[in-house]
Amino acid sequence: MLSETLVFRLPDSGLSASANRYGPAKDAISNDAGVTLVFAHCSSAHKELWEPTISRLFDLCAASNTLSPQWRIREAWSLDAQSHGDSAIINHLALADRQALSIREYASMLNFFVTSKFVDGKDIIVVGHSASTSAWTIACADTTIPRLRALIFVEPVMVVPPIPDGDPRIMAGDTNVIGVLARSEGWDSYASLRRMFKKRYPWKVWDERVLQAHLKHGFVEVTGSAAHRGRVMPKCLKTQEVGFYYADDHVLAGKLVEKLCALYPVHSVFGERPEMVSLESRKLICDVNEGRVMASLSVVPRCGHLAVQENPDGVAEAIFKIISSSSSGTLGKRSLAMAHL
């Protein structure tokens, strides 16, 4: 798999975003007629966490002799939110005086990208995980994107009505805010950080490739700050990370799901273990009686909410099945998937 990194500036905020563009290996057959996949990450993550999934997708595509040319993957993009990953390093001075960026601001960046020169004239499929599913919903529900073929949501977290007092979906976000703000400011070395990850949940159950990517791309050794010099710190500061856990924008996304499903095919993919998104929340998100009609539903085995981190190959296979069924004009049975949610 080949890759290159680009940085683009957002005209509304003046912030920048970092993006990786991936293509098949040099010896693979090029396909200019195929689809472009655009990936967005979850809270506290970064664009490189998608790499094992993207690599597996290229392999599956190359091995297939049934995909029609227009549904083969021509390229994939993975984007860093403005406050996460390499974007956070680029924007560190501008972010110093800003409150935590919101899901709505994440959505603004995603909307800019899918209507930009980078994908102009290309058929696209967007893929989100957890918090970015709400961002994609806000980004696309009020925009006509003629060549947007589908949205694929892995463990979607938008909060759809009804929302009673003490709703566990909102309480989970509040709990995350408390936990993040109480977290350590950094580690003495990458070795000590890795040891901590190997002992603690959820990192200890992550796929080794994803864990290695997280260590390499999610952290930076501080050189300029006297207070933290020599410490290994997350690229995304915890004071910025918490912005993606606040409920308001996830509630907004929940109100827009019906509209989104009426505009585009929306596919939901869930982890086998119901964690952040309970069984009841899954049923609400996919409630056809409220107009939230998913084009397909699927379940990835051997993982929970952090499906991309725990079973990237399984997530890739679920995405590939969606692309394959779209190519052949047949989708998996919704009723069977619902029975396993």
Rank of each mutant, 00 (worst) to 15 (best):
K255Y: 04
M109D: 08
G121W: 05
L215S: 09
Q82A: 13
V299R: 12
Y22T: 02
K216I: 05
D287I: 03
H228I: 12
M109R: 05
D188Y: 01
K199Y: 06
A227T: 11
S189L: 09
L49C: 10
E280F: 05
M338I: 11
D249M: 01
A226C: 13
P164I: 07
P234D: 02
A135F: 09
L57N: 10
A17V: 14
S64E: 02
I138V: 10
Q82T: 12
L215Y: 00
K235S: 11
G14P: 07
A226W: 13
R72S: 14
Y190C: 00
A25P: 03
V232F: 12
H46S: 09
A81H: 13
S327A: 01
A150K: 06
V299C: 11
S328L: 13
L211Y: 13
G304C: 06
V277T: 14
D59H: 13
I319Q: 01
S116E: 11
E317T: 08
L193H: 07
G254L: 01
N111G: 10
L110G: 02
L331H: 09
F197K: 06
L211M: 11
A318E: 00
V266K: 02
A135M: 04
S324N: 02
S278W: 00
S296G: 00
A316T: 05
K198E: 15
L95Y: 09
L284M: 13
E4F: 01
R104G: 01
C140S: 15
G329I: 09
R72F: 08
A94Q: 13
